[in-house]
Structure formats: C-alpha cells, structure tokens
Amino acid sequence: MGRVRGVSQPGWQQTVAHFVECTIAIMNLHSDSKSRPLLYGELAQYYDLIHARHDYRSQASAIHDVLSENGVPDGSKILEAACGTGNYLIELQRHYTVSGFDLSEEMLRQARRKLTGMSLFEADIKSFKCTSPVSAILCLCSSVAYLRSYDELRDAFSSCACALNRGGLLVIRPWLEPDQVVEGMMWMDYFEGEEIKLCRQAVLRRHDRDSILDFHWLVAKPETGVTHYLDRHVLRLFEHREIERALTTCGLNCRQIDVRGFDRSLWIAHRD
C-alpha cells in the first residue's frame, strides 16, 4: 500500500517511495495468490460506495420474476449465498423471508448495519448447513469463481442441494467461461462524494484456467490524502460442462436462462 500526502517530500523522492511500496505489495500478492481479496476485508467499508451505480433493485425484480415462474411463491424462505453487504436481500425482503451468509465477517458487518434483525451468518458455501430447508438459494455475484477446482464446485452445489426443499430452486450467476475471456479486458469503477473519492481499475490477465484481476484502488480523503491499494482477485474459469456436471451430480435438474438486467446467462437448477 502506498500513500501520498500533500507535497512535503521532493517530487522524485515521493515517486520513488511510492514505487517501492507498490512493488513490495505486488511481490507479496504474487507470493500468496490464495490470500483473501482486500475488497472482502480492509476495503469492505467501501464496497457499497464503489458499487453505487449497480442497479440491485432492477436485478432483484428480475430475480423475483424468475422465482415466481419457477414455483417459488411470495412468502417463501430464501437464502442468499455469498450475500456480501446484503444489497439484493434489501430488495427481496419485500417478497420473501430472507437470510444470507458470507465467508467475510467484514462484509456481514456492513450488511447488518442495513438489515437489522435479519439472519446473517458467516459460512463457507462448500460446507454450510441450514437449520431448516429453504425454497430457493441465490448466488448472484459470480462468487463460485472463487472456488479453486471442480471438486470444490461440486461440494458447493452439494451443500446447496442439501439446504433446499424438494422442488426447491438454486439460482447461480456464473463468471466468464474460458472462451469468453479476452486478455486485456479492462474494468473501472469510481465514486465521488464530498468527503471521499474512490477509483479502482484493473486489466484482466489469464493464467491457465484462472482470470486474474489486480485492482488498483485510489482512496482520497481530506484528512489522509490519497491512499493506494492493490487488490488481487483470482477467478476460476469454469467451463459450461463443468458447471452442468457438478449440478446434475448433486441431483439438481439444471438449465441456463437469460434474465433481464444481467450481463450473462444465469443457471437455474431444481432439486428433484
């Protein structure tokens, strides 16, 4: 992490110091590619701000339609896996009895501030358990891409299948497939407020079956100046047939559908 405060140092010294700190951060990231992304830890406090332009309401409305069309009526018990800061749950609680879990306690802390009284718990999608079955499970933020192998993918779907009622529905938003990835794809998000300004950028790199996004963050505050963070996300490129096989192996009858407001097809899978 590098920090720039005012102009107290000569320009060249400031630049060298910043370069050294960033280089150390990059070396640390390469030495521990399995470390948790900062977005789900130290930077969780900025998650909602950097995603402020995301239309959760419209997407949640589309998911409500999908659930209704697939036998999940209003009033049903719904669970969101990898719920993050709870932005979909805020919208879906209008129609359902909702709960959620996430692997990041920092993300859940942000969610609890907005969803007081809701059941939100820390758990791993590969091994979570529910006290009672639910009518639908949602995983809408491409979180399955953080799983590292087909076996982990199958374990996650097995846990979901065990938590569903007979006839229950699993809805998965996947990440990109291998043939959809183009080296050099670029991302940029930003937020402008009175007391804070944020920007993050990344250029996708591919290594075998992984897509690697090194997000460079700039966090500007009046009291601290501009702070730089480097946040690595390693996302697995599962093939269509791998997801389909993992779902069917777990007793889930699956297909892909196009849903308004989502940039790629979603998987829906009924428990037999």
Rank of each mutant, 00 (worst) to 15 (best):
E21T: 13
H30P: 00
G2L: 07
G117C: 02
P222A: 08
I24P: 00
L198Y: 08
H228M: 05
P222S: 09
F191I: 10
T248A: 10
I63D: 01
C22H: 07
G84P: 12
M107D: 00
D124K: 11
E183F: 08
A25Y: 00
S142Q: 13
E177M: 11
H270T: 09
I243A: 11
S104C: 07
R245P: 00
S127W: 04
S58V: 00
G41E: 15
R113I: 03
I243Y: 06
V20R: 10
T97M: 08
R36W: 06
P37K: 03
L204D: 09
R245K: 06
H216L: 10
L170R: 05
N87K: 14
S119I: 02
G41H: 10
G167T: 03
E195V: 05
R255T: 11
M185S: 09
M186V: 12
C199M: 12
L164C: 03
V182E: 12
D155Y: 12
K126N: 10
A44G: 12
S104H: 05
M1A: 14
R3H: 14
V20N: 03
I137S: 03
I137E: 04
A202Q: 03
Y46L: 10
Y56L: 02
Q9P: 00
V7I: 07
M186W: 06
N70L: 06
G71C: 07
Y47V: 05
P73D: 06
Y47I: 07
P178R: 07
T15I: 04
D74L: 10
I257G: 03
W267F: 15
V4G: 00
G117E: 01
I24Y: 08
F128D: 02
P73S: 12
L147K: 02
V20Y: 09
P37T: 02
L235S: 04
W175C: 03
L67I: 12
T131S: 13
S35K: 14
K197Y: 06
I172S: 01
A111Y: 09
L138G: 06
E42A: 15
T249P: 01
L230S: 03
L43F: 13
G184A: 08
M107G: 00
G117I: 02
T97L: 12
S142E: 15
V259N: 01
C254E: 14
A111T: 01
D151F: 10
V134N: 04
C254V: 09
L89Y: 13
N28S: 11
Y150S: 11
C130H: 11
L218Y: 01
P178E: 03
G71A: 07
F128E: 03
F121S: 04
D32A: 12
W187N: 03
L237Y: 13
V234E: 05
R36K: 14
G41F: 08
G168Y: 11
C254S: 15
S143C: 12
G168P: 08
E177R: 13
P174H: 05
D48N: 15
D179I: 02
V182N: 05
L153D: 13
